[in-house]
């Protein structure tokens, strides 16, 4: 009731004092400078031919960069890889994080806090370190993954995890899942602790089973945090450069090339800023579209 009153009072205040609306202007200016200006510059560059190695100034070429992109096989491979990498990682790590949080939810005893800490450790490891760790673990000759799998008889000869066009992307996804699962574990564990005891108690009184409680009580409470967590991780993985670059540099061939790696190659190896900007704009539109979809999901749920 008091929250309602406060909201009403602040709304009426805002209506009476228009000055408060202007208070947002400094923030908007800063946002325009640090976000808007680079985006607008990139959009303009995407319609120009601009190579840093060529002394001539940028030249307006209309939509040529975009039509080149449409015909560029590698762009489509990179886009497909990005979608597989992003959604594969988010789906699997969300599932494992959810499972771990539910299993460890009611764990008590001497070691429960230790186990929780161990589950969270991968989140504390810098992504570049994760990438190097897995790169060495996946090595075809002498890598621990092959050694273990051969010792237990699963493999008869070393697998070229990062040197096979079929295995490289899944291998990087596994490393990424290891690194991002703790995020979902933390999100779900926090949301679980926020479920009112009275609701769970009522379920117990009504003799609801484990699955029934999970499905009808816990999962509805977890939906919003999972949607928000997934959105954050989709954006983070869409932009993930370090792991792919350190582990494979987008190879072998283009089998693990993602959009961010392709943009990097175009901009900082070929110095073709015009084409790289065009890819960047498509990339931005895709991310905005995904974010809009997630937010719509949240709004539908709220209403």
């Amino acid at each position: 009731m008091s929250a309602k009153l406060n909201t009403r009072s602040s709304r009426s205040l805002r209506g009476k004092i228009p000055f408060l609306d202007w208070m947002v202007i400094p923030t908007l200016i800063v946002l325009f400078l640090i976000v808007g200006y680079p985006v607008v510059s990139t959009a303009i560059l995407s319609f120009q031919e601009y190579n840093l190695l060529k002394p001539n100034p940028p030249e307006w070429i209309g939509i040529d960069n975009y039509s080149d992109m449409y015909a560029d096989r590698v762009f489509w491979v990179a886009l497909t890889n990005t979608l597989i990498y992003t959604f594969g990682t988010v789906f699997v790590s969300a599932l494992i994080g959810l499972g771990l949080a539910l299993i460890l939810e009611n764990m008590t005893g001497r070691f429960s806090s230790w186990i929780n800490a161990i589950v969270v450790i991968p989140w504390a490891v810098p992504f570049v370190v994760v990438a190097f760790l897995f790169r060495f673990m996946y090595m075809q000759n002498g890598g621990i993954v092959n050694e273990v799998l051969m010792d237990v008889g699963i493999l008869s000869q070393p697998a070229p995890w990062l040197n096979s066009s079929d295995l490289a992307l899944p291998a990087i996804i596994v490393a990424n899942v290891w690194a991002t699962t703790p995020f979902f574990f933390l999100v779900v564990a926090a949301a679980l602790s926020g479920i009112p005891d009275a609701v769970l108690e009522s379920a117990r009184v009504d003799r609801a089973g484990i699955w029934s409680t999970l499905w009808h009580i816990k999962l509805p409470f977890l939906r919003t945090p999972l949607v928000i967590g997934s959105l954050l991780m989709v954006i983070a993985n869409f932009n993930d450069f370090a792991k792919v670059w350190v582990m494979t540099q987008g190879g072998p061939g283009y089998s693990s090339t993602t959009l961010v790696v392709y943009v990097y190659r175009m901009a900082f190896e070929n110095f073709d800023l015009g084409y790289a900007s065009a890819i960047g704009i498509i990339w931005l539109i895709l991310l905005l579209g995904t974010a809009a979809l997630y937010i719509r999901l949240l709004l539908v749920r709220s209403s």
Partner: peptide, 15 residues
């Protein structure tokens, strides 16, 4: 980039 990506495909895939 183009040639070495092809070399990598030759040594790591069945294409």
């Amino acid at each position: 980039t183009a040639i070495m990506a092809g070399v990598q495909e030759a040594v790591t895939s069945d294409i």
